[in-house]
Structure formats: structure tokens, C-alpha cells
């Protein structure tokens, strides 16, 4: 789904940044994507997507 409507950024793009670029915070993400730069409404959801991706990833490693 679209997390940021202003810039048309999707949750998949954010997840990809977390997994491939090791992004762990909105500040780091802002260097890669132009997120939360216009109205700021998406900041909360962006943080959730980052957090959930990190959680999923670390759980996956524990199982392996």
C-alpha cells in the first residue's frame, strides 16, 4: 500500500530499504527516499513499517 501519498512511496519500497540498505530509522530512510517531507502524515506509519520489517527479519534469523 501507499504509505506516503504526497510522494507516492509504498511500504514495499520502505521494506526493501530496510532489508537491503540496513535502514533502521526515519532519519536514515530520508537519505534514501523523499519520505515525510511534505505533510508529515506518513511519519507514524513509516516508523511502524520499519519496526515491523526489523522484527520479522530478526525472528527469521532466530529460527534459522
Amino acid at each position: 500500500m501507499y504509505v506516503c501519498i504526497c510522494k507516492g512511496i509504498t511500504d514495499k519500497q520502505i521494506k526493501q530499504m530496510v532489508l537491503e540498505q540496513g535502514v533502521g530509522s526515519i532519519r536514515e530512510l530520508k537519505q534514501q527516499l523523499d519520505i515525510a517531507s511534505q505533510c508529515g502524515t506518513c511519519a507514524k506509519l513509516t516508523q511502524q513499517v520499519i519496526d515491523n520489517t526489523i522484527i520479522d527479519e530478526s525472528l527469521f534469523k532466530d529460527v534459522g
Binding site: 500500500m1 501507499y2 501519498i5 509504498t10 514495499k12 502524515t41 506518513c42 507514524k44 506509519l45
Partner: peptide
């Protein structure tokens, strides 16, 4: 409020 817009039909 925040709009939740999907990218494909099921979403």
C-alpha cells in the same frame, strides 16, 4: 486522517 491506499485490488 491518513488515507490507506492499496496498490492492487485485494490490498
Amino acid at each position: 486522517g491518513q488515507l490507506s491506499i492499496g496498490e492492487e485490488t485485494p490490498e
